[in-house]
Simulated scan of single mutants.
Amino acid sequence: MGDVINLNQFRKGRAKAAKTQEADANRRKFGRTKAEKAVEESEDARRKALLDGAKLEE
């Protein structure tokens, strides 16, 4: 026979894992310094300019 599990504990564990995952995502999104944000923004602008420069005109 299979093991007996408590469904309440299972649901709480699943909810806790989801909250932990969301917290990690928020830390990555909002937990950056102003310098890190500026570097990322300049890299995005450079990447976009490079892509637009290589675009073929129709």
Rank of each mutant, 00 (worst) to 15 (best):
M1N: 15
M1C: 05
D3C: 06
I5K: 13
I5Y: 11
I5H: 13
N6R: 13
N6D: 10
N6E: 10
N8H: 07
N8F: 08
N8V: 12
Q9K: 14
Q9P: 15
F10R: 09
F10E: 08
F10L: 11
R11G: 13
R11P: 15
K12W: 14
K12P: 12
G13I: 08
G13F: 13
G13Y: 15
R14I: 06
R14V: 12
R14E: 07
R14N: 03
K16R: 12
K16N: 07
A17M: 11
A17V: 13
A17K: 12
A17G: 14
A18F: 15
A18Q: 15
A18M: 15
K19N: 12
T20I: 13
T20H: 14
T20E: 07
Q21F: 09
Q21H: 12
Q21Y: 15
Q21I: 11
Q21A: 10
E22F: 13
D24F: 14
D24V: 13
N26M: 10
N26Y: 09
N26L: 10
R27K: 09
R27N: 06
R28H: 04
R28I: 03
K29A: 01
K29G: 01
F30G: 00
F30S: 00
F30H: 08
G31V: 04
G31S: 00
R32S: 02
R32C: 01
T33M: 01
T33Q: 01
T33A: 00
K34R: 11
K34L: 03
A35M: 03
A35P: 00
E36I: 07
A38M: 07
A38V: 02
A38T: 05
A38S: 03
V39Y: 03
E40G: 02
E40R: 08
E40H: 11
E40P: 00
E41R: 14
E41Y: 07
E41I: 03
E41V: 08
S42W: 07
E43A: 09
D44P: 01
D44Y: 08
A45G: 04
A45D: 00
R46G: 00
R46C: 02
R47S: 02
K48H: 02
A49M: 07
A49R: 03
A49K: 05
L50S: 06
L51D: 05
L51H: 11
D52R: 11
D52H: 06
D52G: 02
G53N: 06
G53D: 01
G53W: 10
A54E: 03
K55S: 01
L56M: 03
L56Y: 06
E57I: 09
E57Y: 08
E58Y: 14
E58N: 07
E58R: 11
